[in-house]
Amino acid sequence: MSGVKHTPGPWKLDVLPSGGPFGAAGGRAYGVSARGANGLSMPVVVWRGIARPASPEGQANARLIAAAPDLLEALESLVEHTDGIRLPVTAHMMRNRARDTIARARGEQSPSHSDQKEVGNG
Rank of each mutant, 00 (worst) to 15 (best):
L78N: 04
R52Y: 08
G107L: 01
S114C: 09
V119S: 00
N121R: 12
F22D: 03
V45N: 00
M93R: 15
I85Y: 05
P56G: 10
S55Y: 07
P10V: 05
V79G: 12
D83K: 13
E76H: 09
S41T: 11
A60I: 04
R28M: 07
G122M: 06
N61V: 12
V15M: 02
V89W: 05
G49C: 10
E76W: 10
R35Q: 15
R35G: 15
T101E: 08
A74K: 09
S33N: 14
P43N: 09
E76L: 14
V45P: 03
A103V: 00
E76M: 12
P43T: 04
W47L: 15
L71C: 14
L71T: 13
S18H: 14
A51F: 10
A91S: 13
R48C: 10
A67K: 08
L64M: 09
R63T: 08
A62K: 02
P56I: 03
A24G: 06
K117Q: 14
A37Q: 10
G58K: 03
V46P: 06
V46Q: 06
H81V: 09
A24R: 13
A103K: 02
P111L: 13
G26V: 08
P111H: 11
N61Q: 11
H92A: 05
V44R: 09
A68T: 15
M1D: 11
M94A: 07
S2N: 01
A103M: 01
R52V: 06
R86C: 12
G23L: 06
E118K: 10
R106L: 02
S18A: 10
L72M: 12
R104P: 01
A105M: 07
G9S: 05
M94G: 00
W47E: 15
A25I: 03
H92C: 06
G26C: 08
N61M: 09
G9H: 01
R106M: 00
K117I: 13
G9F: 02
I102K: 01
Q109G: 04
K5A: 00
T82A: 01
P17M: 09
L40S: 05
G20C: 12
S112M: 11
V79N: 12
